[in-house]
């Protein structure tokens, strides 16, 4: 299907070997469509961050397949995965991860410039992305001169800049107060509705509720899915059996 942005197929991940081996994920299937935000919940150590780093091609799984915009990561060279990551995927972490020496717009433009875009074109795309998170007026501020919520909105802009359509967010609201966290999620939601897709890892049910689907992990397995799409989603989640 062409509206599938990201697919995990029977993904398992083990750390270590023998007695001390830890199974962080086992047999996880997950699909993210265009316009869809999927929340991952689960206790600490249940495998949420592992799932996200595998989905983003930062770690390759012990077994199973990751398919990003139709491309099978297992068949690609490390270099090509790095390029795909830069062009298709955006990460948002709890601690913003902005480069302090660069302004907001330079932070957002960076992945494009690394990808060889002309400075001017990269900057204009970065301004567009800042516009979607309503921060055009802060474009030339340095991260230190922005509030936590504003920095996180810059991180979202960076995650969706240029051709990037897949947002992978790990506790993006963890360091923010309740109202600011909600604002960040509203922005994320709006961006997804405009034609992106993403995975949101969170401990907070109130934040997970912004997603279309909430997936529950326990000991590396998906144990529960709550969907606001009703029957339709129930069907797609039984297909994988």
């Amino acid at each position: 299907m062409s509206d599938v942005l990201l697919q995990l197929d029977g993904v398992s991940q083990q750390y270590g070997r023998g007695e001390t081996a830890v199974t962080a994920l086992s047999g996880v299937d997950l699909t993210v469509h265009v316009g869809e935000l999927v929340a991952i919940m689960g206790a600490s150590g249940s495998g949420k961050s592992t799932l996200l780093t595998i989905a983003g091609g930062l770690t390759s799984p012990t077994s199973g397949e990751v398919i990003v915009e139709g491309k099978w990561l297992s068949t690609m060279s490390a270099k090509d995965v790095a390029i795909l990551r830069r062009r298709s995927l955006g990460f948002v972490f709890q601690d913003f991860n902005l480069i302090p020496a660069l302004t907001a717009v330079e932070n957002v433009a960076l992945p494009l410039e690394l990808d060889g875009w002309k400075h001017r074109r990269a900057r204009s795309a970065a301004m567009d992305a800042l516009g979607t998170v309503e921060l055009t007026d802060r474009a030339s501020h340095f991260p230190d001169d922005l509030s936590g919520g504003q920095q996180q909105r810059v991180a979202i802009a960076r995650a969706v800049v240029g051709t990037r359509r897949i947002i992978l967010a790990d506790e993006p609201t963890g360091a923010l107060d309740s109202t600011t966290g909600e604002l960040v999620l509203r922005m994320l939601r709006r961006r997804v509705d405009a034609g992106a897709g993403g995975i949101l890892v969170t401990h907070d049910a109130r934040h997970a509720a912004w997603a279309d689907r909430i997936v529950f992990l326990r000991d590396g397995r998906i144990v529960d899915e709550s969907s606001s799409r009703g029957v339709e989603a129930l069907l797609t989640s039984t297909v994988r059996e």
């Binding site: 049910a205 509720a209 997603a211 909430i214 144990v223 709550s226 606001s228």
Partner: peptide
């Protein structure tokens, strides 16, 4: 617990969508 959590999360999603509609 899981059945209950699923139901409560769905209510929460519904409420959030309602709220999102009134920005």
């Amino acid at each position: 617990i899981q059945v209950q959590r699923g139901a409560t999360l769905r209510s929460l999603q519904e409420l959030t969508r309602t709220k999102n509609a009134t920005d």
